[in-house]
Amino acid sequence: MRQYIFRRVMISFIVLIGVSILLYALVRLMPSDFIDMTTAGNVKMSDEVRESLKEAYGLDKGIVEGYISWIWSALHGDLGISFIYRKPVTEIIAKYAPITFAVAFIALVFEVLVAVPLGIAAAKRQYSKMDYIIVSFAFMGISLPIFFFAQILKRVFGFYGLDILPVSGMLTARATYVSFTFTKLLDYARHLVLPISCFVITSVGGLLRYTRTNMLEALNADYVRTARAKGLPEKKVINKHAFRNTLIPVVTMVGGMLPSLFSGAAITESLFGLDGLGKIALEASYRADIPYLMGFNMFLAILTLAGTLIADILYAVVDPRVKY
């Protein structure tokens, strides 16, 4: 097991190098660069000044040359300085990642808590009213565009509607200077209700339907019939025998969802004004902030690889047939 993990980490490292080459090429191929965008419309700016600025930002180098210097410093732990924020990228990520991570993690927990029980409930009574209601709810969630649904939620629960929940930001202005207390925590929670429910509702459908399909398959399996033939009560047949087998594919899927939660955060965070990595990433891609984009995307790539590794390890935990 330890050897397997070690090997996987080594392979991941090689994959990351490949990913970084692709990412750097794509980011540099963007039609415009930071200097052109910032100085556009500024009549006082001469071409020479522009060129010297580009040189100062390292944008005068070709893709290959630029990549080599990026990867060299990246391997030394330096991801460069963000063009927009003028701070080291590592510092920005370290500062804002906890927020994104907390939001994503809470969303993931809620998603699993909603999707798995509902998926099982739907599968237990296939083609019943309950099943149809749950499945149409899931489809509605899948089909709703997140930017549209977010606005509806804001309109209904926010200031212009019921006025019971804040629509943006992380804290009420007054609470910012209060020391850490229960009220402050509650204020955080209130601000996160809308973004998290928006996130959960729009993304719960996939996992729900996946759980339902796998549960249906398990319920038709021979071992479930054996469990019934033993005389086990129906609850135990479903919650023990069928569920343990449904868990195997679901665990793999949840592991794979980890990075998508972070990339999805780019839109949610911007819509609800949360200070997370995603919001900054969206801004960075508008303005071609190459160091930050590289840093953020590499962070996502690492999360993807970590997610699959965790899923594979969990796979061995829930399925005795899998051994590393």
């Binding site: 021979d222 071992y223 054996t226 469990a227 025998h241 343990r244 087998n245 399925d319 005795p320 047939r321």
Partner: peptide, 10 residues
Amino acid sequence: EPMTTLNPVF
């Protein structure tokens, strides 16, 4: 079907 009658995870 002895191959599928037993639950693989227990």
